[in-house]
Each structure stands twice: as C-alpha cells, then as structure tokens.
Amino acid sequence: MTDVLNVRDLNVSFALHESEVHAVRELGFDLRQGETLAVVGESGSGKSQSFLAIMGLLAKNGRATGSARMGDVELVGMAPGKLDAYRGKDIAMIFQDPMTSLNPSLKVKTQLAEVLVKHQGYSLDKAIKESIAMLDRVGIPAPERRANAYPHELSGGMRQRVMIAMALLCRPKILIADEPTTALDVTVQAQMLDLFKELTNDFGTALVMITHNLGVVAGLADRMMVMYGGRAVETGTVDELFYDPRHPYTLGLLSSTPNPESRARRLNPISGLPPSLEHLPEGCSFNPRCAFRFDRCLVERPPLEPVGEGQRRKACFYEGPLVAEERSA
C-alpha cells in the first residue's frame, strides 16, 4: 500500500510574550492510503496542533518546521495561497465542535457548494445538486430542505453530518477528524463512527482520528499513535497496542478506560497531571508519573525505536513486562 502522507521531524512552537512553547517535537509518522490512524493522548499532548500545522491552520503566533509530504507536495511552510489548492480538495479536516464550526450566517448549501465551485470548477447549480446528493449520502433526511436551512436550524448530530459531507465533497485522499464526536450525544456518537467507517471505505480516504476516547479507537482504527508531551511515545496496530502495550503511558491510558469484561472494580487512573509544555521534565517527559522509571529515565530521553520486526515503535527504556498489577505508584 502506498503512503498518502509522510511526516518527518515536525515541530510546532508558539511564541508567547517572552518565551516559546513547543507543542509538538520531532513528530514522524506515515499514513497509508485508505487506512484509519488514531492519534491518542491527553489534552495538551500536541495531537491537534500537529494536524493543524499540517493544514496550515496554526494560530498567528504558531510556527511549524520539519516536513509533511503528501505525495510530492511539501505542506509545511507552503504559502497559504498555494496551500488552498490542496486544502479541502486532497486533505480535509473536521473539527470538534459542530455548533460553532459552521458559519451561522450562510445557508448549508452555500457552505457546501462553494467547495465544489472552488476545487472542481463546477457551476453553482451543479455544485448545489452534488451537495444535496452528498447530504443524502451522509444520512441527512430531506436533504433538499436541509440544504436551504441555516446551521442553527439543525441539531448537533445533523451539523456534524453536514461537516462530514463538506469534508468529503471532493473525495479527499486524507481526512483529519479532530475529536469529531466529543460534542455529541453518546447515541449519536456511535452512528457518526459508523458513518466515518462507511464513507472513508467507499471513497478510499485515509482517516486520521484525533481522540482521547479509546472506545472510538478500538471500533474504528487500524493503527494508532499515542502522544505525550508533544511527542509520539508508541505507535503500532490497534491490536498490538491494546493487547500488548509496551509504553507505560499506553498501559495507563488503557487501564483508566472502563472495560466491562475486566474484573477490576475500580478504574486505575494515571497518577499526576499532564506536564506543562513550558517545563517538561528532564529525560523522559513521562518519568514523574511512571511506575516503571529507573535512573536512566531521569537524565536521558528515550528515542522512538522499533519494537521487534514489524512497524511497531516505542519510546521507552524499560524492557521488562508491563503488567498493570505490578504498578506500585
């Protein structure tokens, strides 16, 4: 399978008044055609910022360096005017809050059709027809009536469906979904995940699902990347990471997720708080919260290195067995 996105040494930093905060450091990964990659981590782990950087959507004080190649196209550092030829066409993004991510003063059909007019050169009539067909495709009942509605006239789930339709209009190679179900009711969340699965399958679109919900990952993703303190700490297939986590942070995330099959009475949260990006600890960023740390972790940062023969990688010095019950901290 070919790669649709190759990210290498991606760094994102934000200039504050006197200092600089590094939100993402030395991030590297590949995204294959048609696969679903879950990016998992706590708030502030840099998962959203890395993809906003790739989309050229960082806040004004943000700066990205490194490389994100989509085929032959280098996205990092590209001028916004040039980037607009690819954004919305080959690489699309859906955001967390459907309530505020649609323009309140424009009709749904305007916001959809403009994508096709811009990227496919359709006439407005044809673009609107196509948009209505796409609304139908994402499961919006009475799509013609809804197309003439304003966003405030639609429910949250309906609006997120509109966002999905909007992102998929040009059948992009890559769809980045930044916590797309967080703001929705639980019942709607499941429907929405099925929709993601179905549509990205049909269109051959590679999906990046940014989430902190491991339930979402289990049901949807092929591979996952766990981020902590702005770095990837473990990557691999979902099965590998779920059944045999090799990084203590991945283990911590898994054991803090409710699991009806587990006999444990209580959830086992990760102790401590996510690190401040301005004052990352020496050595491994996770060491203050890690039950498996030893001397080396305090002074040296573990690199992201292959585990075994496959594509798995982890950034941890500890090589012994990781068993949740052994955790003493």
């Binding site: 919305g88 066409k89 809050d97 003063s105």
Partner: peptide
C-alpha cells in the same frame, strides 16, 4: 472563530474567506 477556521480548511482562499464568511457576521 471556528467557522472561519473551517472556511480556511476548505481552501477557499483569503479573499473568499473574508468576503463571504467573515464580513457578514
């Protein structure tokens, strides 16, 4: 706002983002 970010993510270009998505609200 989030909806201007959406408009940028759609690759509409600065002029269209400003004239269609930002000025009215």
């Amino acid at each position: 706002s989030n909806y201007v970010r959406t408009a940028k993510a759609k690759g509409l270009g600065e002029r269209l983002v400003l004239s269609r998505h930002a000025i009215k609200p």
